[in-house]
Computed example of a mutant assay.
Amino acid sequence: METFADYLATIENRQNRARLEEVLDWVSKRFPNLAPRIAWNQPMFTDHGTFIIGFSVAKHHFSFSPEKIVIDRFSDEIKRAGYEHTKQLVRIRWDDPIDFPLLEKMIEFNIVDKADCSAFWRK
């Protein structure tokens, strides 16, 4: 979590900071092969240099972005989990439960789907 320490320190609300730290720590432990990094002022995880998932924070929620194709594929499950989403990101209100199994499926999908991808983003 050292990679994300400076970013997390910018989140003023301690509970929100702890919440995002919990999620980032979970991703790090569940997917130790992913590389944590900060890019575009956001914590993210990559695999062989390609983007897998990124996170951002707002006043009332945090978001994660796995790329549009993943959100399209899991849209129904995202809605069933009670989360709002756009074409590019999923919003989780700070006090909502985190559907870790859904997050895991989305990350796993990206890892497999981008296994042969040589670019950072899908084209």
Rank of each mutant, 00 (worst) to 15 (best):
10 T>R: 15
64 F>A: 04
11 I>V: 15
20 L>A: 05
20 L>P: 01
43 P>F: 06
91 R>C: 00
76 D>T: 13
93 R>C: 06
4 F>V: 01
8 L>H: 02
30 R>S: 12
53 I>D: 01
118 S>A: 13
52 I>M: 11
100 F>R: 01
36 P>M: 03
53 I>H: 01
98 I>E: 08
23 V>E: 00
24 L>V: 13
99 D>A: 09
11 I>T: 06
92 I>H: 03
87 K>F: 05
29 K>A: 15
109 F>T: 00
121 W>T: 00
111 I>F: 09
114 K>N: 13
82 G>A: 12
102 L>T: 10
69 I>A: 14
25 D>P: 05
95 D>F: 07
34 L>C: 05
103 L>Q: 02
105 K>E: 11
20 L>R: 00
117 C>V: 14
61 H>A: 12
40 W>T: 07
59 K>W: 00
31 F>V: 11
21 E>Q: 15
16 N>Y: 10
7 Y>P: 04
88 Q>T: 12
77 E>I: 02
80 R>N: 13
83 Y>R: 03
122 R>M: 10
108 E>L: 10
5 A>E: 14
72 D>G: 03
46 T>P: 11
106 M>D: 06
76 D>P: 08
41 N>L: 04
38 I>Q: 01
104 E>H: 05
97 P>Q: 09
70 V>P: 06
96 D>A: 07
114 K>C: 07
27 V>W: 00
58 A>Y: 08
97 P>G: 05
20 L>F: 02
40 W>N: 12
61 H>S: 13
99 D>G: 09
82 G>C: 11
55 F>V: 08
122 R>T: 14
14 R>K: 15
8 L>D: 08
63 S>L: 09
41 N>P: 02
5 A>M: 09
49 G>H: 02
3 T>P: 00
35 A>F: 04
107 I>D: 07
81 A>H: 10
100 F>Y: 15
69 I>F: 10
104 E>R: 09
7 Y>Q: 04
120 F>Y: 15
59 K>A: 08
23 V>K: 03
25 D>H: 14
17 R>E: 07
59 K>V: 06
56 S>D: 10
54 G>H: 05
66 P>I: 00
71 I>R: 01
119 A>C: 09
1 M>A: 02
76 D>H: 14
60 H>D: 15
27 V>M: 01
117 C>D: 10
89 L>P: 00
30 R>G: 05
88 Q>M: 06
89 L>G: 04
101 P>W: 01
102 L>M: 11
87 K>A: 14
3 T>R: 03
104 E>N: 10
62 F>M: 12
82 G>S: 08
39 A>N: 11
83 Y>N: 01
88 Q>P: 00
82 G>I: 08
80 R>F: 04
8 L>N: 06
1 M>Q: 06
119 A>S: 14
73 R>V: 06
14 R>V: 15
3 T>H: 02
46 T>V: 13
92 I>T: 02
79 K>L: 07
